[in-house]
């Protein structure tokens, strides 16, 4: 046991921080998913595909702007907007006509979109691995707690998470649109009855949610190899996070992402091969005691 204790502290800390920066990405993507779930009641399987499109678009934008640091910042602005535009077309072109259908139909429809998006990505970008360089100012490491090297970019991610959370809080609680959306999540008919254009509210929420998926894709791009299928695992993780936090609750998504990121990174430390089991166990334990998630669900 002593040997274990002497190794763990440094290892644990570094794992905790890796877990936290992963949490940021998961939170950003899952908050978009939960927003759409809460207000529009759509379990959006295509959310992962939009995240993938965000990452691929970031690759292209970075490359087109010369591969330098500026490219990443341009991508950070443009790529999520492109994803938002795609989602706007999908929403106006198809989803808006189907809101009254059963959840199962909507789930399958979003799955159809994810199939189509997946193949379109294959068509446009091909099947090879792509990589996006870490922007110049975030290259290298910072020493952390006793000289443990921690990637600077991950530190940037750690800061990006709270910023997005605060912006989302302001958006949902302080703007008129946010208040209407939250009211529509609770009682759709009522909001419609008082003369608000529900359809436009829904479109906005859908687009914002998808924008977040794209943003997550751009932010993750420098840390992973951008490739087909990167959407598949992510969407499952995002699902887990939103059910753990409570469907439709943005703070729940934050809490869920924290639990998920930490159990995963610490799990890998405990049992390298099957560390992936721990976040799932966490979800089962949570739902055993709180069948509708940790925080108040809009469902």
């Amino acid at each position: 046991m002593e040997a274990v204790y002497s190794i763990i502290p440094a290892g644990v800390l570094s794992q905790v921080f890796v877990g936290l920066s992963r949490t940021t990405i998961l939170f950003i993507v899952a908050s978009g998913l939960t927003l759409i779930l809460g207000v529009l009641r759509i379990p959006n399987v295509a959310h992962g595909s939009l995240y993938m499109i965000g990452a691929f678009t970031a690759f292209t934008v970075t490359k087109l702007s010369g591969g330098g640091s500026a490219g990443f910042w341009i991508a950070l602005v443009i790529a999520p907007l492109i994803v938002a535009l795609i989602s706007l077309i999908a929403e106006r072109g198809m989803f808006q006509f189907l809101y009254e259908r059963e959840h199962l139909m909507l789930l399958l429809l979003t799955f159809a979109f994810s199939l189509v998006f997946g193949d379109l990505v294959k068509l446009v970008w091909g099947g090879e691995y792509k990589s996006v360089p870490v922007p110049h100012i975030f290259q290298g490491f910072v020493p952390l707690f006793g000289g443990l090297p921690f990637p600077l970019y991950n530190l940037f991610l750690l800061l990006a998470g709270p910023v997005v959370a605060i912006l989302l809080y302001l958006l949902t609680n302080k703007t008129k649109m946010g208040k209407i959306a939250r009211a529509a999540a609770v009682d759709r008919e009522m909001v419609g009855a008082v003369g608000i254009n529900v359809s436009r509210v829904f479109a906005t929420v859908f687009v914002i949610g998808c924008y977040l998926a794209g943003l997550g894709g751009v932010l993750v791009a420098p840390t992973v190899s951008v490739t087909l299928g990167m959407d598949h695992n992510l969407i499952i993780e995002a699902f887990l996070i939103v059910i753990m936090g409570g469907l439709g609750n943005i703070w729940g998504a934050l809490l869920g992402a924290l639990i998920f990121g930490l159990t995963q990174s610490l799990g890998i430390l405990i049992w390298p091969k099957f560390g992936i089991i721990f976040p799932y166990l966490a979800v089962v334990v949570v739902l055993l005691f709180r069948p509708t998630g940790l925080l108040k669900s809009t469902w």
Partner: peptide
């Protein structure tokens, strides 16, 4: 594990737990 949950929670938890089985099969 899932039966106490409401419809969509049931489906989403099931899809997640099933993915865990996949991950285990995939790595073992």
């Amino acid at each position: 594990i899932c039966i106490r949950l409401s419809k969509l929670y049931f489906g989403m938890l099931q899809i997640s737990l099933g993915s865990l089985v996949w991950a285990i099969v995939y790595r073992w």
